[in-house]
Every structure is written in structure tokens, then in C-alpha cells.
Nucleic acid binder design. Structure first.
Length: 626
RNA sequence: GCCGGGAUAGCUCAGUGGUAGAGCAGCUCACUCGUAAUGAGCAGGCCGAGGGUUCAAGUCCCUUUCCCGGCUCCA
């Protein structure tokens, strides 16, 4: 039962329970079935009712809505061939093959037709037939995609669901009647390859979502609105942080003054903390000879997303897509002994990758970006300690930027790999131990490691509970081999070091985009591009206000004066829209008492303070980075 | 890269083959004002770029750049 109660299938009891519940389907002996099939369950079966509250329930509910969508499309556009229509995490979609593209107006028509189908409240009827009969049936109706699916199914029998004359191939289960759908909305139209393969035909996908109540649907649509409001591309323009220019090129970012000062703040923090954590900060070139990436193997694997090499003095040069070969070269610039290890090199290294035009997306997917990269060269026996250090360091950095929830994944040896199984086992074990030592729970992605070593990925959750993968820690057995790295051991012999690649933010640009959305542009004081705006009431206050700004600036605070010929309400509004954390308001009272009245971003008034008191408060808050 | 939709003033957008518009922002002037928009005036455009159809193109057609929603991809 949804409430956790289990009952036996004395039919009458079960039906009473179903009637008084919001059940959508049932799970009998762990198998999901239609409610209508409950009668066939044996008396000793364990029955659980599945409602919309469960993932399975949502999926069935939304999948049924997608059937209704297909039914409506079929009625309105008989030339459209249905392909597949599953539920997704927060909705559903259905793919159709049709020569004429659907328009937003079509969507409204389809919604209307769906309402009619729901209102008719006809039952979903399951039919079990042989696979071959089903193929015949769909061949007759010209449903070539269904035929193709059936041809790929490895079973004697399949099930069909029919609802008021509309038949679809489906494993089920479904809701009992179309009237069960209480709230749905079609959201968008997009292209999608048949079976997700870019060699296949492009179909038209209609996205939608469905909920059990109108209120829940509204809450979801409100959430989508909130996502839109926080869109870093929109806030990036509104807060004048960055832009793109058609004349410069797709996926190439222009950092405006406001964005740049924030980036500088982030970079300063990053570099300072790395130096404290015994990393060496590096700078390396943006282009280098192609042979470096031939040697690293990147050219072989990622040629498609690397820019074409350029010929310079008859030598092929390449815009760098990765920083590792440079760090490796620095490692190799001197003989290393076991006493030197670990050596930690860190760089905010800007790399260029040719991303397909269609995937570019604001700051989140670009063609030029800066990795907060580090490479650690260590002995095998140092891996565990190093990973532990990195984990602590990573979580500290993520916390500082306001991310406190994350999912951690450990990826293990894939089918194709370099190195020996023994070293894979030992280092994977070291990663596990490091995670356990920090008391971090994680999921294991079996076989999900890169060919060159196991890795730990950390996905952060933002204020809207959306997941973003930023941090990655990867052990590398490949590059030390390819670049013939060595160190002199205590035994006097030459040994091969292990490399650990690691990024905390991943890409500075992308992380910045995520930060914008996480904070909705309302940045904590230490990051805010303008920290204090000093607003004058009238012209005669300009002089005192300028004194305050000068004092704030000399204390390292980002401050400005707004002595414009405007009313105070206007100035407050203007600064509030720019999300300036503190507004100092200067009028006769303040000028006379040599004090400052302060209005916080949320509208709260504090003070009055002397300039020194106010500076103390601000500096302290900046220091705490909260 | 693929499918679909777009690009008009700094921003948000209207303009269905016949004289390029609005609001906000900007500038000027007046008001010197106490916690989210004072009023008036002015200026602002190669209608993304290139080609074509037409007496006439922001509007129709082709090419191209860039953007948006997805798909595929992401060291």
C-alpha cells in the first residue's frame, strides 16, 4: 500500500483499498501491473499500490499522458507517424515523424484535443498478442517505427494498449481511464534523432508534463519561470557581467568590468589557497606544437573537437585543448627524486576546443575556457593521501562558493584500459579509502573510468536543487608512460610516477555561470562587483559622500558614489536592481553627525555607523566570504 | 553537426510589399528632494551581413553569421 501497509489479496479488501486510495497502478510481487489486472493476482501475492507520490507512479501517469498526446496528434494529423513516447524525469515526450513541422499553434490544438480525450474518460485496455501478429497489425496501419521496435524485441508476446480506438505498442502499465489525468501541459517542440542516433532521421519531439493536481502543475511551471529568471545569460546582460559578439565568434566570451572583477576575486582566492596548500602556480602558452598532443594521445582521440593546426615556419602548431603536456614538460625539466614527490602544479589554463555550433550555451558550453587545472606527480604509495587532500580542498572551495550538497561518483576500470589490473585495483582502492576516510558516501560507476585511470567526480547541487558536475579527480597511468616520466627512488633505481589530474570548478566560465544561477545574481559581498553604493539625498551632500567613498576604497572595498540629480527612491531602485549589497544613504542628518545610514539589499536598515565602524563591518563580512 | 524557431534603437518588443514605431535606458533642462521609477524636451536605425524577385523589400526567395529550444557530442 502507498502508506506502507501490506494486505493480502482477498479481492474485496484490495478493491476497497484501491477505491479509497489515489492508486495509479499496483506492484504485485515486485512487478508493476494495471489496477485492472489485480483480479488475476493469486491470493498469497504481496500487493503494493503505486500512487503519484512514487517515481513509478509519476512515470506511469506521465507515460499515459504521452499516449493521450499521441492519440490527439494522430487524430489531428493523420500523416504523423508515432515513434516513441516515454516519461522523463519531470514530464514526458513523444516523437513523431511528419514532413510538416509542428508549430506552437499546433501545440494548442493538440492540448485541446487531449482535453477532449481526457474528458471522454475512456479506459486503457491491455491486449496481449504475439509479436508477429503485432508486426502485422502495425504494418497494416503504416506504423513503421512500431514495426521497427517490434523487430528488435526478443519475446514471444507483446502487449498493446488501446484507448478509444487508438492503439499503441506498450509494456504498460497504464492508468485505468483517460479521465485520471487532472493537469498537464505541452511545453515545447524540438528535433530528436530516431533512437538518438545522429545517422538516423530527425523526428519531431513534443515535450510536456503532467501532475496530479492543477496546483502541482502550477508549482512546476513557476519553477520553470524561476529557472528562466535565474538564467545566467539574462542576468549576465542585466548585471553587465559578460557578453558575446557575433563579430568575435561563437562561444568566445567577453568579460565586462563587472564580470572581470568577480573573476579576479575568484582567481585571487583560488591562487592564494593553492599556494597555501603547497601547489606551485604555473603559466603556460596558449599554442604549442601539435606533436605534444600527438604524444599525449589527445590528437588521436579528440581531433574532431580540436581546432585545425596552423603551420608556423613549416611546423604544425595547435591551440591548446589541454594543459597537461605543459605541466609534464615542467616536471621533466629537471631530474626528480622520490624526496621531491608529490609535486603539485596548478594553473588557470585557458584552453580552446572546437565545440559543435549547436551545443554552445551561454557560459556553460563555450569554445574558449579556463580550466582550474592541477597535476600532481606522486608515488603510488602517496595516492591515497593526495586524494584525501584533494577531496578536502575541493569541498572547502565548493563550500566557500555556497555549495553544500553534492553527489559523489567513483568510476572504475573500463573494458579498454592502460596499465595493469593490479595497479588499477590498488589505485581504485586508494580512492575508496580516501572517500571513506572523509566519511563521504558515493556511488560506484562500474567501468565508467577513463581508459587511463579511475576517477572521482563530484556533482554539486545548486539552490534549485539542480545537479552540475564540476569537480573531477582522475588518476592517470597513461601520460607518465607516454612522456616517459621518472624519478629516482630510494633504491637508486628509476621509477615511474603516477599523475593525478584534478579540477575543482572545472571551467571557470562554466562555474561562473552556475554561480550566477545559484545566487540568482544576488552575490555574497566578497564576490559582488559593487559592494557599497553611496547615495546622496541632495547636491550639498556630494562632498561628504565622496569622502566616505574614498575611505571605503582605501580599505579595499569596491564602492561608488551616486550623486546624480535624482530622488533617493530612484537611486535606491537603480542600485537594488543591480543587486548592490549595501547602500549608504547620505543626507543632512548624516552629514551633520558624520555618520552613515545603511540600507541592506533586502531593504533592512542598519546603523547609523561612523565610517570606521562601517568599514569594520564590511571588511569582516568580506573576510568571512559569506 | 542535425531539426525547428529567431535577429528591427543600448534593453524588451510592435510593425502581413507602399514615409521605420513604443516603453525603459541615454542626453539636456527644471525641481534639491529621506528609503524600489519627478516632470518636460532632445537624440538615437545600413531592420544581423551578402545576393536576388519587384515600380517598390524590415516584410517574399537564396546564401551566410550569430542567437534560442532540443538531438548527438563533451578529454
Amino acid at each position: 500500500m502507498p502508506d506502507g501497509k501490506e494486505v493480502t489479496t482477498a479481492q474485496a479488501d484490495v478493491w476497497d483499498a484501491v477505491k479509497s486510495s489515489r492508486a495509479i497502478a499496483a506492484r504485485v510481487n515486485a512487478e508493476l501491473i494495471d489496477l485492472g489486472m489485480l483480479q488475476q493476482a493469486s491470493d498469497d501475492a504481496v500487493v503494493e499500490l503505486v500512487s503519484f507520490d512514487s517515481e513509478a507512479g509519476k512515470e506511469i501517469y506521465r507515460h499515459s499522458t504521452s499516449h493521450i498526446l499521441a492519440h490527439a496528434v494522430k487524430e489531428l494529423f493523420p500523416d504523423a507517424k508515432p515513434a516513441i513516447g516515454p516519461a522523463t524525469e519531470d514530464g514526458f515526450y513523444y516523437d513523431f515523424d511528419r514532413d510538416i513541422p509542428f508549430t506552437p499553434e499546433d501545440l494548442l490544438k493538440i492540448e485541446k484535443k487531449m482535453q477532449e480525450i481526457i474528458k471522454a474518460n475512456t479506459p486503457f485496455v491491455r491486449k496481449d498478442i504475439s509479436r508477429l501478429d503485432a508486426i502485422e497489425l502495425f504494418k497494416k496501419s503504416g506504423d513503421t517505427y512500431k514495426v521497427e521496435i517490434l523487430e528488435g524485441i526478443d519475446a514471444e508476446n507483446v502487449s498493446l494498449y488501446e484507448e478509444n480506438g487508438f492503439v499503441d505498442l506498450c509494456r504498460g502499465p497504464h492508468i485505468q481511464r483517460t479521465g485520471r489525468i487532472k493537469a498537464f501541459k505541452l511545453l515545447s517542440i524540438a528535433g530528436a534523432y530516431w533512437r538518438g542516433d545522429s545517422n538516423n532521421k530527425m523526428l519531431q519531439r513534443i515535450y510536456g508534463t503532467a501532475f496530479e493536481t492543477k496546483d502541482d502543475l502550477k508549482a512546476y511551471l513557476d519553477f520553470l519561470e524561476e529557472v528562466k529568471k535565474r538564467d545566467h545569460r539574462r542576468l549576465g546582460r542585466e548585471l553587465d557581467l559578460f557578453s558575446f559578439d557575433e563579430n568575435i565568434g561563437a562561444g568566445l566570451i567577453l568579460w565586462h568590468p563587472n564580470g572581470s572583477i568577480m573573476r579576479k576575486t575568484i582567481e585571487d582566492f583560488w591562487r592564494d589557497e593553492h599556494i597555501k596548500a603547497d601547489y606551485h602556480i604555473l603559466f603556460t602558452p596558449h599554442i604549442a606544437q601539435l606533436k605534444l598532443w600527438e604524444q599525449s594521445g589527445h590528437w588521436e582521440f579528440y581531433r574532431d573537437s580540436m581546432y585545425d593546426p596552423m603551420q608556423i615556419d613549416n611546423v604544425a602548431y595547435e591551440l591548446k585543448p589541454m594543459n597537461c603536456p605543459f605541466h609534464i614538460s615542467i616536471y621533466k625539466s629537471s631530474l626528480r627524486s622520490y624526496r621531491n614527490l608529490p609535486i603539485r602544479y596548478a594553473e588557470l589554463g585557458t584552453v580552446y576546443r572546437y565545440e559543435k555550433s549547436g551545443v554552445l550555451h551561454g557560459l556553460l558550453r563555450v569554445r574558449g575556457f579556463t580550466q582550474d587545472d592541477a597535476h600532481i606527480f606522486c608515488r603510488e604509495d602517496q595516492i591515497e593521501d593526495e586524494i584525501q587532500n584533494i577531496l578536502n580542498f575541493t569541498l572547502f572551495v565548493l563550500n566557500t562558493f555556497g555549495f553544500e550538497k553534492y553527489d559523489i561518483y567513483l568510476s572504475t576500470q573500463p573494458e579498454k584500459f592502460v596499465g595493469t589490473p593490479e595497479i588499477w585495483e590498488r589505485s581504485t582502492d586508494a580512492l575508496k579509502k580516501a572517500l571513506d576516510a572523509r566519511g563521504l558516501s558515493y556511488q560506484v560507476d562500474e567501468g565508467g573510468g577513463a581508459f587511463y585511470g579511475p576517477k572521482i567526480d563530484i556533482k554539486i547541487k545548486d539552490a534549485l536543487n539542480r545537479s552540475w558536475q564540476c569537480s573531477t579527480i582522475q588518476v592517470d597511468f597513461n601520460n607518465p608512460e607516454r612522456f616517459d616520466l621518472g624519478y629516482r627512488g630510494s633504491d637508486g633505481a628509476e621509477h615511474r610516477p603516477i599523475m593525478i589530474h584534478r579540477a575543482l570548478m572545472g571551467s571557470l566560465e562554466r562555474f561562473f555561470g552556475i554561480l550566477i544561477e545559484h545566487y540568482a545574481g544576488i552575490f555574497p559581498l566578497w564576490l559582488a562587483p559593487m559592494q557599497v553604493s553611496v547615495l546622496t539625498i541632495a547636491e550639498r551632500h556630494t562632498e561628504y559622500a565622496a569622502e566616505i567613498v574614498a575611505a571605503l576604497k582605501s580599505a579595499g572595498i569596491r564602492a561608488e558614489i551616486n550623486a546624480d540629480n535624482e530622488k533617493i527612491g530612484y537611486k535606491i531602485r537603480e542600485a537594488t536592481l543591480r543587486k548592490v549589497p549595501y547602500l549608504a544613504i547620505i543626507g543632512d542628518k548624516e552629514a551633520e553627525e558624520k555618520k552613515i545610514t545603511v540600507r541592506k539589499r533586502d531593504g533592512e536598515n542598519i546603523g547609523p555607523f561612523t565610517t570606521a565602524e562601517f568599514i569594520g563591518i564590511i571588511v569582516e563580512e568580506i573576510k568571512r566570504r559569506k
